[in-house]
Nucleic acid binder design. Structure first.
Lengths: 206, 206
DNA sequence: CCTACCGATCGGTAGG
DNA sequence: CCTACCGATCGGTAGG
């Protein structure tokens, strides 16, 4: 990936995130990186190709951050708190790309759309499994893990809409508050105490 | 408002909700109501005018449903649970229009955009006030009402993305589960008991 | 990476 | 409400 290509994707992420994929022209993107409209095609093969690159990259980041935590050691509450923290981390560190992944993926063509849908399902599955495990273990008080998962992920994803890099709260503060809201929401009696050497919570791990 | 006009707005809501405002052409809308592209303009003055009508109507519905509850009697927990229920009710009863209001309003022109932004702020304010009141009264355990409000509203709005009219859950079931997740999330000790004659909870009021 | 261009489609209008 | 059209813009390409 060349520097130019990264510039183009950054510009496209900002525009797709703000105006949507369909509301952004290739000339809008070109203008942001000081190119003529047609010159963009020296670096990309199509507008959808740029969308795919952004979406796929962000999907990998979310997954790579959450998977080891979800399948790692610790109680369900510990793991879920860490997953909330990693999700918040990915969103705040790359808001535009995360926003495109979360809200513009539907503009992909059929085959890529199916791939992203599967990836999204798998990611949601990580959360649902941890929530269901916590419920089964009596750690959470949740009667409908599927709805609880959808509720929680929607709340987390909304961050991409309202997060401002220059805002009042940083990644750590948001992760803290979100974790509390999630764990309380699921009826966790209290944050599970970390056992020495197995602390995967946000503050110590990132 | 004529029957035709309503048909047009319904078609536009479905398309704007699924493909976005910029991803929908006036001819797409016309096709859904069996009109030629240009004939649409016998009923509407512009594409943006259709968007505005949908957005403004939905905004009024959300507000009209939530305002009396927010400012009505009852504990903060009671009022908030009822607000969650009314929000879920508006979303499930008119998912497409709600979806357009929630996610396509940014495509409005400058002056209408400002009006909607203000309306959205006011609506969010209703939730924030109730949450802050509950926190001040010691009814909720919330240290940051602004973040808690953003978290909750994002979770509620996400319903417009995943709700399916033919799905497993109806309005009442979703409202029940959402209310529990919200109240627990805010650290409400337990659902406040309803006093006779002041019961504004979802199941009895709708 | 630019200039110049392609056909297609866009939102919207005229005239009936 | 249709036919026929308007200028503008769209994503993308040819040739250098």
């Amino acid at each position: 990936m060349t520097v130019r290509r990264r510039q183009i994707e950054d510009a496209a992420s900002a525009l797709f995130g703000a105006r949507g994929f369909a509301g952004t022209s290739v000339r809008d993107i070109a203008r942001l990186v000081d190119l003529q409209g047609g010159s963009l095609y020296a670096h990309v093969t199509s507008k959808e190709d740029v969308l795919w690159s952004i979406v796929d990259g962000a999907a990998r980041r979310f997954r790579a951050a959450a998977e080891p935590v979800a399948r790692g050691p610790g109680s369900a509450a510990e793991r879920l708190a860490a997953m909330v923290a990693t999700h918040v981390d990915v969103v705040t560190r790359s808001r535009d790309r995360a926003s495109v992944f979360l809200f513009q993926w539907r503009f992909l063509g059929p085959e890529r759309l199916a791939a992203v849908a599967a990836a999204r399902d798998a990611y949601e599955g990580l959360f649902r499994e941890v929530i269901a495990a916590g419920a089964a273990a009596g750690e959470f008080d949740v009667d409908d893990p599927a709805v609880a998962t959808a509720f929680v992920l929607s709340a987390l994803n909304g961050l991409a809409h309202w997060y401002r890099p220059d805002g009042r709260l940083g990644t750590a503060e948001i992760a803290e508050r979100f974790s509390a809201l999630v764990l309380h929401g699921l009826g966790a009696a209290r944050p599970a105490p970390a056992r020495p050497g197995t602390d995967h919570r946000a503050r110590s791990s990132r």
